[in-house]
């Protein structure tokens, strides 16, 4: 195997390692919200440090690949998209930290049962499928992730409206509800990050940007 192919494999493996860490952080975050535990929040922070280390390493690898190997075609698209996917995964880690930090402030629960967990699980599913699409070169799965973002946005809107109602009805809940608004905003951002990753997967596979389809008929077939 050529050095270039070894380095490309290292890049793909690195992204998969980052994605694995991010998924573990999401799982821990969901658990921390359900049952506050400083150990879980601490673990999320530890894992975030690992993601940051990976980000620096993979950024450098991408720059080296561009400078030393002048990739073309699919290889070029993989490297160019990796420079975007890596920070998306790193941001997922940051959002998990933000949520985990607030986990102890959102109890006892004030939301209708299961709605917060459902938002977390939907988001986790999107991240997992975006990563699976990257690993399996699966354009259909990537498109499904992008469409799934509407479900998360809808869920976010429902919970947000519910929180407003709760705050209006009971001022004693305002502090918890404020934390929860930030929690759901972070989940919604993670879903956006999964969408961005899926768009990059489509670019790698199809060679055409899937972003902003309203601008020049950008929808990727």
């Amino acid at each position: 195997m050529r050095l270039f192919d070894i380095e490309l494999k290292n890049l793909r493996d690195g992204i998969m390692a980052m994605a694995g860490i991010a998924e573990e952080m999401i799982e821990l975050t969901i658990q921390a919200l359900a049952e506050p535990s400083s150990a879980k929040a601490d673990r999320v922070n530890e894992l975030d440090r690992q993601l940051d280390e990976w980000e620096l390493k993979l950024d450098q690898l991408c720059v080296d690949l561009l400078a030393l190997h002048s990739p073309a075609a699919t290889d070029l698209r993989l490297v160019a998209s990796s420079l975007k996917i890596v920070p998306e995964i790193e941001r997922i880690g940051d959002h998990c930290c933000n949520i985990a930090r607030r986990a102890s402030f959102v109890h006892p629960p004030i939301l209708s049962e299961g709605s917060l967990e459902r938002l977390g699980q939907e988001t986790r599913g999107m991240v997992r499928r975006a990563v699976d699409a990257f690993v399996g070169h699966d354009a259909a799965l990537a498109r499904a992730v992008i469409q799934n973002d509407d479900t998360v946005d809808e869920l976010y809107g429902q919970i947000y409206r519910e929180l407003l109602r709760i705050m209006l009805a009971d001022p004693l809940c305002i502090e918890r509800a404020s934390h929860l608004i930030l929690v759901i905003k972070n989940w919604e951002r993670i879903a956006d990050q999964a969408t961005n990753i899926a768009e990059e997967v489509l670019y790698i596979l199809k060679g055409r940007s899937a972003k902003h389809p309203y601008l020049r008929g950008n929808a990727v077939e």
Binding site: R2, F4, P71, A72, A73, T74, D75, R77, G207, R208
Partner: peptide, 16 residues
């Protein structure tokens, strides 16, 4: 040609 070649042979050549 250098970002989205149509033929796999072209892709194989330009990617070495």
């Amino acid at each position: 040609i250098f970002t989205t070649p149509k033929k796999s042979m072209t892709e194989d050549y330009i990617t070495g």
